[in-house]
Amino acid sequence: MTLTIATSLDEVLTALAEGARPIAGGTDLVVGARQGKSPLPDSLVAIDRVAALSQIESADGHIRIGAGVPHRRLMSDTLIVERYTGLADAAALIGSPSTRNVGTIGGNVMNGSPAMDTGAPLLTLGAMVELRSVGNTRQVALSDLWTGPGRTSANPDELCVYIVIPQPPALSGSAYVRLEYRRAMEIAVVGAGASVVVAEDGTIVSGRVAMTSVAPTIVELAGASDAMAGLSLVEAAAVIGAMASDQAVPISDLRGSDRYRRHTIGVMAARALDAAARRAGGEQIGVPVNRSLGIGAAR
């Protein structure tokens, strides 16, 4: 096996063009190889020392998060926690402290798992990924990126370099909650992200909801914004919960039956919306919501 330790983006892209696969924290790649899911590639390029990938930059109208930013930073970065709170919720739930120290947002997004925690909040926040290869750069919406479990539309020579998220409007808030059976080393049984804009009186103006572990990819709840516009939070939560259960196409596996997932995705969607709307109205709900509000009894 060849391992190239890159220190610049150009080195990484050249290595990818020659057939190497990128490795940052290795929390999916190495664990997957040890489980026998897929062997480690013959050629790896380590991207964790590329400084450009570890920046969080706020620019005009958006934030640019380097693909190499670890979950630990996402859950505690002031800007992320204040304005992109759903992403911080998700980062705080991933794995264990050691997983969060080395696992990265780029790795989570590009792994393409339907159970990834950062996916649903990123989708509701309208995030794009910036993919780069030698001589080419493009931005892809997340809904176009994820094509199936563990599959993305990125080419093998493309590296996710940034996650770009537009700045949320005023009176908006976001949240991510998941159903979990324990408080660490857990994978979402189901999960939901929501971001909403509220009126001064708390009425929902618009919003987006996305669902984890109920379809082959992270999926957005269709028609959510129209359905909740003009409703009170209590009404909206009920409507969104029912829609989520209706639109979910979960499987049965060791973590839960399709029947149970179909029910609980509704509960999670309603709770995510509730937390997001309350944050939009100025309420401080600590990160992650799962601990602050007792999702899954985990107060």
């Binding site: 159903l179 979990e180 059976y181 609980t264 509960v267 899954g296 009894a297 985990a298 107060r299």
Partner: peptide, 8 residues
Amino acid sequence: DRDTGVVR
């Protein structure tokens, strides 16, 4: 949590 059956 009566909505999910999760016990803490």
